[in-house]
Amino acid sequence: MAKMYHKEKSIQIKSSASALYNNLSVLRIAPRCLTYFTVVHANVVNMVSASWDGLNYSHRQLQSKEGNVATSSSLIMQAAWCVLPSRDLLVLTSQKGIQMYESDGSIMVYWHALDTPETPTAQAVFARGIAAVRDKYICVGVSSGSVLVFDVPSKGSNITLSEVLEEHTEPITDMASECSGSMECIADLVSADDSGTLCVWKSGGDFQLLNKIPGFDTSCSSVKLWKGTVIAGYGTGQIRLYEGVTGILHAEVNAHARWIYSLDIAPFTGLLLSAAEDSLVRVWHLTISPETNNVEIEHLYNECVTDSQICGAKFCDGDGYAFAVTGYDLSEIIRYTQA
């Protein structure tokens, strides 16, 4: 196999990555020639801004400080940038609630507390799964199975909880919005849970459930939505491609030997990235067959990050020209670019 990508200089981070699903978020700030990265370490988010020439790195750490300072500091489940047409926000989910920051991490603009019981219950409480949907919504999943829909104004901190979607019965694992930018796609959002159930939604004043794709008792740990196709990665190491609106299964891939932790798609080229506990990152290519309109998948490339259980993998651009990877216990973000 031709070497499709080569390894670049890694970016050091202040503390190592925790083993959490989708534990890497990337935001390109093209006008300033910068890329932002976030990686969660227990109760801290490591944030790095890297200049494209590779000469400047600046670091910031965000604590999971809660509305009320007296309560304990909680573990963070996920950090992700949400790109809306009017603004970018950095969203953190933890055991105590949801924090939304300006994209550079400087100001916390919104805090939503979860209902946490006085004494811990057998069912852990946390928020996980973050997606920006269409013009003004940020959706966040909760361990109860609820999906919270926040209405975000183009400016300021007047963010409101506009809707709670109650279709899942297991903890939400991940969420994704349609990323192709195509206005033809009916489905806007997909949510996944611990039983592997996938819910496909249309956004609006009231979110509408378009389809519920049943699981098969395996966690769906990472999910993406591209040109109406739901791409789901599971604890069994499988990737499945469903047509979102109909739930038709188009492809099933025995992709990894262990639990998948992260999927990402480059919307302009259809390149798909998958990463798992088996220390492998794979690159795939998705195409929509013009005759049948079916989605097809082809394997392109493997990269082994030796002795690392990978927890985060993301493309750094819309073409899939470069991608970045984090692994449990690693204090670096490893980058690869096309050769």
Partner: peptide, 13 residues
């Protein structure tokens, strides 16, 4: 419960 990696299967509608 996991299959050995290496197989892609595609299905019609």
């Amino acid at each position: 419960g996991t299959q050995t990696p290496g197989l892609i299967r595609m299905f019609s509608c």
